[in-house]
Design a protein around this nucleic acid. Structure first.
Lengths: 194, 194
DNA sequence: ATACCTACATACGTGGCGTATGTAATCGAG
DNA sequence: CTCGATTACATACGCCACGTATGTAGGTAT
């Protein structure tokens, strides 16, 4: 297994995903020319169409990669907190912070939904929502939060977080808005507690 | 005032906005050909570029119209409720319901942010957020809700609502998901109450 | 060893956006 | 009332970018 042949293929795939991710993150999906960013990666569109079918296919692959990274980061955050509730709050804060990163914001929250439809239909629940959902499940089992459907709560928090992030990122004074947003967000989370 | 000349101009503008709104709402911004939908309106792209500068300009005009309609609907809902709290809850429910309408969902929540950037920077706070904010202001003045920054709360609710709507709209069983979503949403709102 | 297939590159057609230009109707000045 | 200027569009053109069809070299299987 893992012959040199398949390794080369995996490398080209990775190159294309990386190139697309850079281009999509910087100038956006619509403005990114496939000839340009494949050329920068030392390839052509031929490779892209072979591996991903079309431009949307590459975007999907990029999204999968980013979602996996976000999920891992979220899991690390919640795992390294002293209490589960604290872990959950940290997780939410981390989610907002990630949504402030230009690449994630652009690809995950702007172009992704516009091109591929809502996040819900990308696959059976993306990882970053599943991570929030899982944390809520444990809190519920511990009796720390009120009786609420955890997936619904996860999606509510997901929606609220991403909007907070967009609000902050596009504000004239991001620091000021950030304080207001995080404070309000924490207040909302407290409402879930018993 | 209101000479026949200016009336004609207003009519062409209205025609273009209506045509664009239809096309954007049905097949999406990117897939909508300007030649097609201007032709259906009995005009050409020349008129569009004259009045709106470019394709994005038309989208902005469409968004302004939709936002105004949504604001009016929200204000009516909150005004016709027995109590202010009830008015606010109804308003939130109405917001989710509006977000379920395909045209609003597509233009306002998907293509709009992707093409023009986050809703926050379209203008100084769009009307539908201002409406929620206003309702919260009055509730706060009445001492019905906890101490929270009202604009932040309005944006939290706005974000949560739109995500709920997208979740519902794209679910396999919208009715089932709708019940879960609305129930969870109400629970979250109750957390704002004193 | 040879025939096939995979993984790309190259070449081409098409469609759609933006712009530059044309034109008819209207408005304002004298 | 007349004539120049401006407005409100339509027409024509160029360019870019996507997708597809085709070509090809290297690896794979038997």
């Amino acid at each position: 297994m893992a012959r040199p042949r398949t390794e080369m293929i995996a490398k080209t795939r990775a190159k294309l995903i990386a190139a697309g991710r850079h281009a999509f993150g910087r100038i956006g999906y619509a403005e990114a020319s496939m000839d340009d960013f494949t050329g920068e990666a030392g390839l052509t569109r031929g490779a892209l169409y072979h591996h991903f079918g079309d431009k949307k296919g590459l975007l999907q692959a990029v999204l999968l990669e980013i979602d996996a990274e976000m999920t891992e980061r979220l899991n690390k955050v919640s795992a390294s907190a002293p209490t589960r509730w604290q872990g959950f709050v940290d997780e939410c804060a981390a989610y907002i912070e990630m949504a402030l990163e230009p690449e994630i914001q652009r690809i995950m929250f702007r172009d992704g939904p516009a091109v591929l439809g809502d996040i819900s239909q990308w696959q059976n629940t993306p990882g970053c929502i599943a991570a929030l959902s899982h944390s809520l499940d444990r809190l519920k089992a511990d009796g720390e939060i009120i009786d609420i459907d955890t997936e619904t709560a996860a999606r509510l928090i997901n929606g609220a977080s991403s909007h907070m992030a967009l609000w902050i990122a596009n504000a004239e004074k991001p620091e000021t808005v950030s304080k207001r947003a995080v404070a309000g967000f924490r207040t909302m989370l407290e409402g879930l507690r018993k």
